[in-house]
């Protein structure tokens, strides 16, 4: 704990590159209840330190706001399931076309070839893509953490078996195995798709967590816990994993952004989301030939994917800096 704190407060003094941001820090600290400068006698918990570092990463903060807006708009505008949203038009209804359907005040994203409101369609696609991405992120994080932790903690044959299994998944190109599973899960809706995608994207995290656990399990606090007869399960969940939480959270974030791209790619190839469901990927593949005639049909879903993935990547970058102050000094 203490070394992290020292390195942050010390870091500010000899980090020339932070001169711009450290004024922010002063302003932030002065505005809040904390003392005028960090590193005074106010002490911070680990979580507070991480949060402070994260909020100082302006790209990550801005991305978080943008992503929040996207999520709120996507879910409230057309509503979820039976709950209606504030957007007056539906995604299934066909309206009279205004001109060739180009964006107007009435239809901000334009209309598709059949006169459907494209804003509602894109919002629905965004909903599905977000649901899939977050489910995949959660599932792959759980599986990856579990496998990595077990392999790293128990060593021996358990590790061999688990890591060879990881290698088996790594040797198959991700898109290929995802496509095969996507086709299998075709009929079972987006949650089925999310489940199978989560079951193939955990490999990177498993390796990272294993590496982390391998070094943590040799530490004295683990020895001490073992000496008083703590059960292995409790050691893993209470002593080892909380110390690896940085790696896990960062990796989980990045797996969400890769899941969004994976889902759209699969849907584009025809192995992902199947009609009547729709996602941003299916929207693009449906309208990609319309680029020259109706460019808005092509731009909106693509920009939506780009925005979400970019925001998540920046948040991941900010989290990485926040959780690893040593890297912070070296890298960003």
């Amino acid at each position: 704990m203490s070394d992290i704190r020292n390195s942050t407060s010390g870091g500010e003094d000899y980090e020339p590159q932070l001169s711009a941001t450290s004024t922010d820090a002063v302003g932030l600290a002065a505005g809040g209840s904390a003392g005028p400068l960090p590193g005074e006698d106010k002490s911070y918990s680990q979580g507070q330190l991480v949060a402070r570092r994260f909020f100082r990463h302006r790209g990550a903060l801005a991305s978080m706001i943008v992503l929040g807006v996207v999520i709120v708009v996507a879910f409230t505008s057309i509503g979820v399931g039976p709950i209606p949203g504030w957007w007056p038009k539906g995604y299934t209804l066909q309206y009279d076309k205004i001109g060739d359907g180009a964006p107007t005040w009435e239809y901000p994203f334009g209309q598709d070839t059949g006169g459907k409101d494209y804003f509602a369609l894109v919002m629905r696609g965004t909903q599905f893509s977000l649901i899939i991405a977050f489910s995949v992120g959660i599932i792959s994080t759980i599986v990856g953490t579990l496998i990595g932790a077990l392999a790293g903690f128990y060593r021996g044959w358990i590790e061999s078996v688990l890591m060879r299994m990881t290698d088996v998944f790594i040797v198959i190109p991700l898109l290929a195995v995802a496509a095969v599973l996507g086709q299998m899960a075709g009929g079972s809706g987006i949650l089925g798709l999310a489940l199978v995608l989560g079951l193939v994207t955990w490999t990177g995290l498993a390796r990272l967590v294993r590496g982390e656990v391998l070094s943590l399990r040799e530490r004295d606090f683990v020895l001490a816990a073992q000496a008083v007869g703590t059960s292995p399960w409790r050691i893993i969940s209470k002593h080892v994993l909380p110390n690896a939480v940085g790696v896990i959270i960062v990796s989980a974030t990045l797996s969400i952004s890769s899941a969004i791209l994976l889902e759209t790619s699969l849907s584009y190839l025809g192995f992902g989301v199947q009609p009547p469901d729709t996602s941003l990927g299916t929207l693009i593949s449906e309208y990609q030939s319309a680029f020259t005639t109706r460019p808005w049909l092509f731009w909106w879903p693509g920009l939506m994917i780009l925005t979400i993935a970019l925001c998540v990547n920046f948040i991941g970058d900010g989290l990485r800096d926040a959780f690893d102050p040593r890297q912070n000094r070296n890298k960003d």
Binding site: S257, L261, S265, Y268, I305, L306, L310, N313, F314
Partner: peptide, 29 residues
């Protein structure tokens, strides 16, 4: 931390957030 660094870093993030097939259509055009 130069302007060049920020530009490249941002472009790198942009490129791996890019849906490939979408970028392909732009490139074709």
């Amino acid at each position: 931390y130069s302007g060049f660094d920020y530009t490249v870093t941002f472009s790198a993030f942009l490129f791996f957030s890019l849906p490939v097939f979408w970028a392909a259509t732009l490139l074709k055009e």
